[in-house]
Nucleic acid binder design. Structure first.
Lengths: 119, 119
DNA sequence: TGAATATATGAACAAATATTCATATGAGGT
DNA sequence: ACCTCATATGAATATTTGTTCATATATTCA
């Protein structure tokens, strides 16, 4: 039932209906986790850079003006979230976007931002 | 130029091209900020609940089994990001989604998650 | 006016996370 | 085999962030 809410007047019907319809805890966790990965300036920059072209770690570090280490750490996070993939060529590792969901998600994000500028 | 990268072999042409094409720092920051807001389980749950119906703070607290205070704090964050809006009716405050970008973004996120389950 | 209640908010604490630094790994060239 | 270079990674640190607790605000009702 209703546990941790100190309020007394609650619309119980609504609460119960919504509780039923909510996706599984696990799914919501994973979705949040995905957005958390997108919710960092460095990683968004990396993704944005990869929209244009596949790039090696050094290139990315140069584009972002960040250390190779920092970029590499973040690439690992992006890789774990299946947002980027890589291809090795000798000692150089080229990263690129794994699929085009990211582009769509990013564009929607951008749309939201832009619509709330004038307002 | 290329500053903080210790690497010597860099594809300078690519780097310069991508640097040009990158959106403004400020825009990228805002986009990351938006996804950061979506990147928390509590907030995703709130949003998900609001997909079904507008709800007051108490209802939400009940659905999430969380304290009224915690929910209220997160609603503030969602409000600041223009993801939710509210309507007062007496002492009760009803929250709902501000626009339907969120729904689209959420669904794309879900899609990404689901496609990477079997793999 | 005063009590009750829904919501908001500030401060404090705990947990998560991004960057740096130092170093490891692994591939090419000599 | 050795040296160089691109990348990866572990530990440490600093910062951010979510929740709790206590309390403030605001509205209804008596």
């Amino acid at each position: 039932m209703i546990e941790k809410c100190s309020c007394t007047v609650v619309h119980e019907d609504v609460v119960n209906k919504v509780k039923e319809l909510m996706p599984k805890e696990e799914v919501l966790y994973d979705v949040a986790e995905l957005f958390k990965v997108l919710g960092d300036t460095t990683r968004i920059k990396i993704i944005c850079a990869l929209f244009e072209s596949e790039m090696c770690v050094c290139d990315l570090a140069a584009v972002l003006s960040m250390s190779q280490s920092a970029v590499s750490h973040q690439l690992r996070v992006l890789k774990a979230a299946r947002l980027v993939k890589y291809r090795k060529e000798g000692k150089v590792v080229y990263y690129s976007l794994d699929d085009d969901h990211v582009k769509m998600i990013f564009d929607l994000g951008l749309l939201h931002i832009n619509e709330n500028r004038g307002a």
